[in-house]
């Protein structure tokens, strides 16, 4: 009897859902912004120096600073004088679904541009480069991934680190146990409480989380870079209008040197100054009018 009811319900749901899912028009985000006179920005609460919740509970950081400029630019382009900026906290696990379902217009955190993700979302120009490294306790003696055989590592769920680390582990036949953590603060906590031996993530982010630690001197960021990736902002698919404004803003900020100043303010202190690859990236992206 129950089974009949349930299967009836299941049948109704499965026939209804596809018809309810509507075809998407182009530039939905811009239309949404025009309607609500507000830009909704997804930001990370624990990804300093790119994006974090500061002591005054405000969204803050390098990516957030750039996106504030982008929001002003959107307001200018759409003729909305005092455009409102709404901040929605996201985690590595929620950011892509929230872009895909339109809850946020732009994600301004520290998302790495990858081909897999491009199937679901679009990316802006890169605003920084990322290299995966290890956060460890100094006295652990761990210098590189190869020292981790038989150890435990923490990876943030929903990050690219999850994939490239697993790939390296499979290739090199290193046997480690993986603990999934929600974000960088929890990764630090796991290392500090000796629950894990290492936390793998982008070196700048590790530096950011290290700065909040009470016992900075006991911790170190070690290892050969495990990855070379681009950090960029995400928007939904079919939003070329919005993407044009975002990329235009980034290019103009690069040409005027504003972006370099923000970079120096936020990222350079973490040991990744504007030289080599970052310098090349910024020169290439400073597209002329």
């Amino acid at each position: 009897m129950f089974i009949r009811k349930i299967s009836l319900l299941a049948a109704i749901v499965t026939t209804l859902l596809p018809t309810m899912a509507r075809a998407q028009d182009a530039d939905t985000a811009l239309k949404r912004i025009q309607q609500t006179k507000a830009v909704t920005i997804g930001f990370r609460e624990s990804a300093a120096p790119f994006a974090y919740l500061d002591e005054g509970r405000q969204a803050s950081g390098y990516s957030v600073a750039i996106c504030n400029r982008i929001a002003q630019e959107i307001g200018r382009k759409l003729n909305i004088p005092h455009i409102e900026i709404r901040y929605v906290p996201v985690t590595p696990q929620t950011r892509i679904p929230l872009i895909a379902n339109g809850t946020i217009d732009i994600e301004c955190g520290t998302t790495v541009n990858s081909l897999g993700r491009q199937e679901q979302v679009d990316f802006s120009y890169a605003v920084a480069l990322a290299e995966g490294r290890l956060l460890v306790k100094k006295n652990s003696g761990i210098q590189d991934l190869s020292d981790l055989n038989g150890k435990i590592i923490a990876l943030a769920a929903g990050t690219t680190a999850e994939r490239y680390v697993r790939a390296v582990l499979d290739r090199t036949k290193i046997n480690v146990r993986v603990l999934q953590v929600r974000d960088n603060a929890e990764g630090l906590l796991a290392v500090n409480s000796r629950r894990v031996d290492a936390f793998v993530n982008d070196a700048v982010l590790l530096g950011g989380v290290l700065r909040t630690a009470q016992n900075k001197d006991d911790l170190a960021i070690v290892g050969k870079p495990l990855s070379f990736e681009q950090v960029a902002f995400m928007v939904g698919k079919n939003n070329s209008g919005l993407l044009t404004i975002i990329n235009g803003t980034i290019a103009r900020m690069l040409a005027s040197g504003d972006l370099h100043r923000l970079y120096d303010q936020w990222i350079t202190p973490y040991g990744v100054p504007i030289d080599g690859a970052v310098d090349a990236l910024f020169k290439i992206e400073a597209i002329a009018e």
Binding site: L17, A21, R22, P97, A100, N101, G102, T103, I104
Partner: peptide, 11 residues
């Protein structure tokens, strides 16, 4: 949180 906005077509 994740699926209903897709059905409704708005956040």
């Amino acid at each position: 949180y994740f699926m209903v906005p897709l059905i409704l077509g708005r956040p």
